[in-house]
Amino acid sequence: MAAGGTRVRTANSDRSESITMARNIDIELQVSRYSPEQDLEPHLQSYRVPIRDEWVILDALNYVKDKIDGTLTFRWSCRMGICGSCGYMINGEPKLGCATFLKDYAPGPVKIEPLRNFPIVRDLVIEISDFLEKLKKVKPWLIHEGSNGQGEYLQTPDQLEQFRQHSMCINCLLCYAACPISGLDPIFIGPAALALAHRYNKDSRDQGSAERMATLSHPDGIWGCTFVGECTRVCPKHVDPAGAIQQYKLAAAMDGMKSFLMPWGKR
């Protein structure tokens, strides 16, 4: 990151409305900027923003966008930790901008960068179509042969519990930013997609695990994972992709051994 590129901008008095908040305490944001139209690589830019107890990082970014610099570019939407839009690297850790409090970083500075292991479109915006391709590859939908007609597929709370945790993924992609393998090996399917595959495999209503096995048991699937465990640590929804992948490995290994020991048996 070019240190020389750091410039500090604060709110112009003519532009900011009467700022009701206490300005005596503020904090420096160092935000990664990359404009594909001008820059060859990202650099950091500094902004000073007030600290308020209830502000999350996203509030600070919106303060900059609204009052200081309209060119600052980032994604966000629900600001309640469920839409998955606002994953950034905050002081080097992948986090949701809407669930990370500014005051926890006082006195600062706070460094905000785009999620690691993704191409950068602009500033904090990353390119995620690759993830969507991988997601589609693992067939994350219920596969159920036979009657799709009347009546529900029964499922006890215990059966629901088997996959509930892995169904909580909001596709925020923090796990991909935390996973070194995803960075090193771009064809590795990665934590979130594998966890979702596991979610459907463990669903008592689903019959597609054999179909999914072909993709998942590929070297780019579960076997690429070396169980760093960081995906699970950073997951804001406690999906535990690392656990899901290891459980899947165990199942695949059992399956593999079975067909190895009993090649004549049914697959």
Partner: peptide, 10 residues
């Protein structure tokens, strides 16, 4: 590779 990886992992 697909068929052998489970053996190596086991």
């Amino acid at each position: 590779k697909k068929s052998h990886e489970p053996i190596f992992w086991t």
